[in-house]
Design a protein around this nucleic acid. Structure first.
Length: 501
RNA sequence: GAUCGCGUAGCUCAGCUGGUAGAGCAUCUCCCUUUUAAGGAGAGGGUCCUGGGUUCGAGCCCCAGCGCGAUCACCA
């Protein structure tokens, strides 16, 4: 491996540290009793409380001025300035700990632990006067030095490829990145709390599935050696969660990593997180109310407000959200009533709206195209769209009133689909017919058509209670809640092409 | 998958019409007991993404490839 000048210097420093009799990677715990933010915020209120500080973190900056130095230490909360004076950390004749170790051999990026007392400098910054210092881990590669003043970032570490490939560096030097992922975690916790407080059971179901189902997508395939059997990585967990409802649980949910072997973009990663929830004895209208309440709660818990800034927009999650049927939404935004149109009339309408269509599109697909082109981009505030055409929803129950529709809703928010929900189809005979239609589509070359899952039908044959189900795109929701423009910014390790050595 | 853009020091970026490879921070050396975007002064550091081609001469022009980003298509 080719070492850079700076890496060579650091390896030399490492050897000198070892030669001094200091272990650069000690094994023992370093006890921490506070953190940077707590000291900074509370020091003036209770100075006495911060006279025996013990904190640890990464050295981010050194300002050496002879026999005394300032440095910046970054822990998991933030950055605090530390003051190191030679005669305080080396009270005797031997000044090596300061002159050699601190001044010369410790580098930016090294992890150290310090003990000391808080004080305020002449310029008024709360700092820690170091009384003892211990090297906890030597860093052999230089980190980018990012500086910031009055909101302006200097020398930022901003190359997206480097940031994603080496997320650890990104997290070290870009505090706002750390904060984004903390928010995502809060968001997931809030969702989980909301559902467990409703007495629903968090479950885990197989990722390796002999038959993939529950969504329309192309799967990844893999192979089990001992069984000598082909497996698919799940594209959804819907059919497994419904089996659990058949088994008698009132409500089950799972935060599921799903895998879809399709294109990548700033909205699509090959693996992504979907939260699916199924609740027995409920329908899609109940689910609308439940979802509204949950997302309002999650926004508040994640961002501290029910109004979230996303790009240029302010998105308000406060209940109630707008509700349209698919037909109403299209009428609202195009002034065209398509509710009574047959396939030919729809085709003509789509052409008039300059929407690209092809002959393979049926009635459902045509409606979906018109909606996707003319309505969805305009829906910024969270909006329910209900009553979807049956052709596109093989797992949803037929509409209780309208022929050709299903009991389904999607929520569109920031011009993107956020979730998808049904009154779940529990009629096993109807379900079998729907699967068979999908098989026909598959035979006609639709690579995303669903496959028939005989065991799932077997489960339905035993009887599934009427059930409301929903899938929420967790990454998409995280993008909104953290105001990030791409999915890569809310995944720690977005998928990247391998670099050849 | 298609189109466009980008790839230069550890990081962020300049680099003119094709004529000796540049800056800031980081690094190294020296000075300095309350500095702060960077304390002061000086020095070193390059596979210009890779491989071909054109040319007396290529970071720059041409061809092919790799990676990333943006837009589109498919989807969540």
């Amino acid at each position: 491996m080719q070492l850079s000048e700076q890496e060579i210097v650091r390896r030399e420093a490492l050897q000198k540290i070892i030669d001094m009799g200091i272990n650069p990677y000690p094994a023992d715990s370093f006890e921490i009793n506070t953190n940077s933010t707590e000291i900074e915020e509370n020091f003036e209120l209770s100075e006495d409380a911060y006279q025996n500080i013990s904190i640890a973190g990464r050295l981010m900056m050194k300002r050496i001025m002879g026999k005394a130095s300032f440095a910046e230490l970054q822990d998991d909360h933030g950055v605090i300035q530390i003051y190191v004076s030679r005669d305080d950390i080396c009270p005797g004749e031997d000044k090596a700990l300061y002159n050699d170790l601190f001044k010369k051999l410790l580098d930016i990026g090294d992890i150290i632990g310090i003990k000391g007392r808080a004080f305020k400098t002449k310029t008024g910054r709360v700092s820690v006067h170091v009384e003892s210092l211990k090297l906890l881990s030597k860093s052999l590669k230089p980190i980018p030095i990012v500086k910031e003043k009055d909101g302006v970032t200097y020398d930022g570490f901003s190359n997206p490829e480097l940031r994603y490939r080496q997320r650890y560096v990104d997290l070290i030097v870009n505090p706002e990145v750390r904060s984004t992922f903390e928010k995502r975690s809060k968001m997931v916790s809030a969702m989980r709390k909301f559902m467990t407080d409703s007495d629903y059971l968090e479950v885990e179901t197989p990722v390796l599935q002999p038959i993939y189902g529950g969504a329309s997508a192309r799967p990844f395939t893999t192979h089990h050696n001992t069984l000598d059997q082909k497996y698919y990585l799940r594209i959804a967990n819907e059919l497994y969660l419904k089996r659990l409802i058949v088994g008698g649980y009132k409500g089950v949910f799972e935060f599921a990593k799903d895998f879809r072997n399709e294109g990548m973009s700033r909205y699509h990663n090959p693996e992504f997180t979907m939260m699916e929830l199924y609740v027995a004895y409920k329908d899609v209208y109940w689910m609308m109310d439940y979802l509204e309440e949950m997302i309002e709660y999650v926004a508040e818990a994640t961002t501290g407000s029910t109004t979230v800034t996303v790009g240029e927009n302010e998105i308000n999650f406060q209940r109630p959200w707008k509700r349209y049927t698919m037909y109403e939404a299209i009428k609202e935004y195009t002034n065209i009533d398509i509710s009574e149109m047959d396939e030919e009339q729809l085709r003509k309408t789509a052409k008039e709206l300059h929407i690209e269509i092809d002959d393979s599109m049926g009635r459902g697909k045509l409606i979906d195209e018109i909606f996707g082109e003319k309505v969805e981009p305009l829906l910024i505030q969270p909006t329910f769209i209900t009553d979807y055409p049956i052709e596109m929803s093989p797992l949803a129950k037929k509409h209780r009133e309208h022929e050709g529709l299903v009991e389904r809703f999607e929520v569109i928010c920031n011009a993107k689909e956020l979730c998808n929900a049904f009154s779940e189809l529990n009629d096993p005979i109807d379900q079998r017919e729907r699967f068979e239609k999908q098989i026909e589509l598959g035979k006609r070359g639709d690579e995303e058509a669903m496959v028939l899952d005989e065991d799932f039908l077997n489960a339905l044959n035993y009887g599934m209670p009427p059930t409301a189900g929903i899938g929420i795109g967790v990454d998409r929701l995280a993008m909104i809640m953290t105001n990030q423009p791409s999915i890569q910014e809310v995944l720690f390790f977005p998928q990247m092409k391998n670099l050849e050595s």
